[in-house]
Design a protein around this nucleic acid. Structure first.
Length: 562
RNA sequence: UGCCGGAUGGUGUAAUGGUAGCACAGCAGACUCUGGAUCUGUGAGUCUAGGUUCGAAUCCUAGUCCGGCAACCA
């Protein structure tokens, strides 16, 4: 367990900050921001960015702002603003009083635009978007100047004011920066600063009918907030020149934009479009479906914030567009849950086991350890009687070599209870299905110890038929059957048909009281989460977070391949 | 075909001119009242070709391959 707090890698962003601090570039200040557009739910890729931005601020004694980048009212909604805020907080980060809306700066941005016009650096253009496509041209050759490029300043000022006043319909005019029509970077070819959008904004309401574009707005948001390190993903690299250009023209505080590679994970998709399709087309049950890589999905799956943070630290930060094996995430989840989750006994696929030499009317309690990784978690009593349930997988009539569990004539340990030997098995005459397994137990092994020190390889879990509760258990598996669904012609053709199986389980009494939102390890089975949406007192619903590592199953798979 | 970025074991990352290291995954073993956890061991890598240098993953040159960019999205 030496993974925790291993020396954090000096990734390139840390190196930049170190260098800035050394030269005194920002006077030792570190101000970052996480600027989501409130048009969708956060996923684990966003979580990487959240961890990076808040993480750097925390590490260097700075601050990180949470800012809604709400410059496009037709796509953004209040619902998302609340969800994002909640998710960032759930991930374990605190922005203090630094919660902002880009839209709060609209007036200031407008004034800066007027200034650019006065400087002769911006003009009102009447070209339609189709016409502009023509003028802008292709990367290989310079574009042509807009016929409105040299409109007099006064006229620009007048038109821009009237755009704001609502005199023109959507799309009729835009405000453009006068940059460089010959630039090989298309984003430097007189990009649009403002467009007309007669739309109600979730935060500013009907105050505006012109809205700034990303390129214009983002650098100003960063500048106004005094951001020092503006961290974003690789695809914004080509937007850095306009970012720098605008701030240079205005001569205002100029943060440094730094790009890093976004997170990609195997066996899932991460794009907003695909996530939306999965939800809309009902391939999953909602944005918080435990099979989704959304923050809410992971939460409902039973993934802890700590394991997500640890994972984000361990994937590192580079400019290389990589595909991270989901096994690393799973490792981080198990590592955390192994330490935290109390153990319990639950039988997912029950079959009855009768102990012939245990009296019908008797019962007793055995003491079980709550968490072998954490002695302070204490112990609990689990009831035992003549009739139990065990898992069907733990019995085989004709077992293969190295099968340590129950079989005719074989002895196994019932976890915490004692040793039993299988004497007989009753089957359904018609189907051949096993109805009941009969055993005799060794009273000297009461509690589980082998009385004479004899070796009993197998230990299986069980619940008392008389005392067991019924619980719905949802067995989740990866959503896709291929490592890289994004690389497929139609990612939907590779959905895993078995990504969810629901079973009726028999569980020990302690689990019937499991509070919604609690994490458990069902011994020998996996980690489970008492669903905070569907679980009710007395009728718990458990979502499987992950199965336990299973070297037996693995060796079976291997021999099956041969 | 223009510009920008990138390339280290299967995967992710470190080494910033001086022994290519770590983690995940894999394999083998030890231990175990969870076939869990833990512990030990182990295979596997610098895109290619030149050059500079006592010495190159690192610097230079040329090439190869991969990603991004042509919304009035962010």
């Amino acid at each position: 367990m030496n993974t925790e707090k291993a020396t954090p890698g000096r990734h390139f962003i840390r190196q930049i900050i170190d260098e800035d601090n050394r030269t005194g570039k920002w006077g030792g200040r570190v101000v970052t921001r996480f600027p989501p557009e409130p048009n969708g739910y956060l996923h684990i890729g966003h979580a990487k960015s959240v961890c990076l931005n808040f993480g750097m601020a925390r590490e260097y004694g700075g601050v990180c702002h949470l800012r809604m980048d709400d410059t496009n009212p037709v796509k953004e909604e209040m619902e998302y603003i609340e969800a994002i805020t909640e998710d960032v907080r759930w991930l374990g980060f605190d922005w203090g009083e630094h919660f902002y809306y880009a839209s709060d700066y609209f007036e200031q941005m407008y004034e800066y635009a007027v200034e650019l016009i006065k400087q002769g650096k911006a003009y009102v253009c009447a070209l339609s978007s189709e016409e502009w496509k023509e003028y802008r041209g292709v990367p290989e050759r310079p574009g042509r100047e807009s016929p409105h490029r040299n409109r007099p300043v006064d006229e620009n000022l007048d038109l821009f004011a009237r755009m704001r006043a609502g005199e023109f319909p959507n799309g009729s005019l835009v405000l453009r920066a006068k940059m460089d029509m010959a630039s090989p970077n298309l984003h430097m070819r007189d990009l649009v600063l403002y467009r007309i959008l007669h739309a109600r904004h979730p935060h500013t309401g009907d105050l505006w009918c012109i809205y700034p574009t990303y390129d214009y707005a983002h650098c100003l948001e960063d500048s106004i907030e005094g951001i020092t390190h503006s961290i974003c993903t690789l695809e914004f690299e080509v937007h850095r020149p306009p970012y720098d250009w605008i701030l240079d023209q205005l001569g205002i505080h100029h943060p440094q934009q730094i790009e890093f590679a976004r997170l990609n994970l195997t066996y899932t998709v991460m794009s907003k479009r695909k996530l939306l399709e999965l939800v809309k087309e009902k391939h999953v049950q909602g944005w918080d479906d435990p099979r989704l890589p959304t923050v809410r999905g992971l939460r409902r799956r039973g993934v802890t914030p700590a394991s997500i943070r640890n994972f984000c630290e361990r994937v590192g930060v580079t400019k290389y567009d990589s595909l991270t094996d989901v096994a690393l995430l799973e490792h981080c989840i198990r590592e955390d849950l192994n330490k935290q989750a109390p153990r319990a006994l639950a039988v997912l696929n029950p079959v009855k086991l009768v102990i012939e030499n245990y009296p019908e009317d008797a019962e007793e309690n055995f003491e079980a350890v709550n968490n072998p990784e954490d002695p302070s978690a204490g112990t609990r009593k689990i009831p035992f009687c003549r009739e139990l349930y065990i898992d069907r997988d733990d019995f085989m009539e004709d077992p293969p070599p190295k099968y340590f569990r129950l079989a005719p004539g074989r002895e196994v340990r019932l976890r915490y209870a004692g040793l039993v030997t299988c004497t007989d098995v009753a089957k359904d005459a018609a189907t051949g299905e096993i109805r009941e397994i009969r055993c005799r137990w060794d009273p000297d092994s009461r509690g589980g110890a082998a009385p004479d020190g004899r070796k009993v390889k197998g230990t299986i879990h069980w619940v008392s038929a008389r005392h067991a509760g019924d619980a719905e258990v949802r067995l989740y598996d990866r959503l896709f059957t291929v490592e890289e669904p994004d690389a497929e012609a139609d990612y939907r053709a590779h959905l895993n048909p078995d990504s969810l199986k629901t079973v009726a389980a028999k569980v020990e009494p302690a689990l019937m009281e499991a509070g919604p939102g609690t994490h458990w390890q069902f011994e020998r089975v996996g980690y489970f989460y008492a669903d905070h949406v569907d679980s009710r007192a007395g009728s718990p619903v458990f979502n499987r977070t992950l199965p336990l590592r299973d070297s037996w199953a693995k060796s079976r798979e291997r021999s099956a391949e041969r």
